[in-house]
Amino acid sequence: MYQERASRLGDGSMLWSDTARSAGSQTRVTPDGCLDLIWNDGVLLVAGPDTHAHLIANLPGSAFVGLRFAPGTGPAVLGVPAAELRDLRVPLDRLWPGDRVRLLAARVSAAEPSARGSLLEAIALSRLADHGGPDPATRLVAARLREGGTVERAAAAVGLSRRQLHRRCLDAFGYGPKTLARVLRLDRALRLARSGMPLATVAATAGYADQPHLARDVKDLTGVPLSSLCPRGPRGPERPRRPTHPAGSAAKRSTPLPSGSRTTA
């Protein structure tokens, strides 16, 4: 069962938990511009920012707890540029000293299930206190782009050239401002569609030229039609989010983990 709540980080980050569904079910993970710190059955992992959707086979009974950082916050916590984690799922001990990660993982694993998320938040808050928070300029850029602003206006708002903005966005978000704007628009559209909003209204509200533009962009970024991601029926649209398998490979392609928006097939 998937659950989420606003994180104590207070910047739009979300704390979530999930238990993998029955054998044979699959989860399509869609891009959302975020990085996640994840506990999965005793292992701490990091899910980097996605540029495309990933189809993952669920392992029944596996438990996940994750902290989904608001765009731009993850690199400040992890100490790694987001571009280095793009489309990857990596064990945390590849980024931080192994002894420290083992102690943190053991502490989270020993806690009551309901307390594990709070421990992930404590880890993140401690890192932010020691190393400083996200770049305020890039947070403003993300807000402007999420609102539908152009790259030129976002750059002007923070006093950067297009080249400077591109470099800062790679570090903070994992991709350039144009791709970030596209991913944030997709994430907003999926949230609106899953709320039950008519698709023509979703397209206009999220900033697409029209409904066919929305349909093309969703298909290009996720590989499936919008109707597959937002099933509509008597119970309304489904809104789960990110899946994971135990660590073993750094690449997201071979070691899927929970992170991003997701739909279960």
Rank of each mutant, 00 (worst) to 15 (best):
R235E: 11
D130W: 06
H213P: 06
N40K: 07
G33V: 04
G74C: 13
G61K: 07
Q211E: 15
S254V: 09
P212N: 08
R127T: 08
L125E: 15
A265W: 13
A181P: 06
S195E: 12
A105E: 05
R241S: 09
T179H: 14
M1V: 06
S118E: 14
V77S: 03
T138Q: 12
G176P: 13
A53E: 09
T19N: 09
G12V: 00
G42N: 03
T51R: 13
A265S: 13
T150Q: 07
P234W: 01
A129D: 10
S109F: 08
G132D: 06
R94S: 10
P212D: 10
A23I: 04
S114N: 03
R241A: 04
R241E: 12
L199F: 12
A181G: 14
T222H: 02
D171C: 05
E84P: 01
A251D: 08
R28M: 10
A110G: 05
S195D: 11
D130T: 04
G72M: 12
R107S: 14
V77Y: 01
A6E: 08
N58F: 03
T244C: 12
D93E: 11
S259F: 12
Q26V: 13
R139C: 05
G260N: 08
N58K: 11
T73K: 07
A172T: 01
A247K: 14
G174H: 10
D41C: 06
S249N: 06
R153F: 08
A189H: 05
W96T: 01
A129C: 02
V65L: 06
R100G: 15
T263Q: 12
R107E: 15
G24R: 07
A193S: 13
T150Y: 11
L184D: 04
W16G: 02
A124F: 00
G12C: 02
A142Q: 05
L257S: 13
D36C: 12
G133L: 07
T150I: 04
A200K: 15
V108Y: 04
R5I: 02
P231I: 00
L104F: 00
R139M: 01
L145H: 10
G207Y: 14
A157D: 15
R185M: 00
G79M: 03
L145V: 07
Q164Y: 03
S114W: 01
P134G: 09
G248L: 10
F69I: 00
R194D: 05
V141S: 06
V29F: 10
P75F: 06
L192I: 03
G42R: 05
A76F: 08
R139D: 02
S25T: 14
L104G: 00
V158L: 03
D135R: 03
V151L: 05
R28I: 09
L125M: 14
A63Q: 15
G117E: 02
G174E: 08
D11I: 01
T255N: 13
P81N: 03
L221Y: 02
D210T: 09
R5E: 02
Y208W: 02
A137L: 12
L199R: 13
A76W: 08
T255G: 04
A137V: 06
A70E: 05
R127E: 11
G248D: 11
L92G: 00
S17F: 08
R182L: 09
L119A: 11
G132A: 05
R182F: 09
L92V: 01
P113Y: 00
P212A: 05
L9K: 04
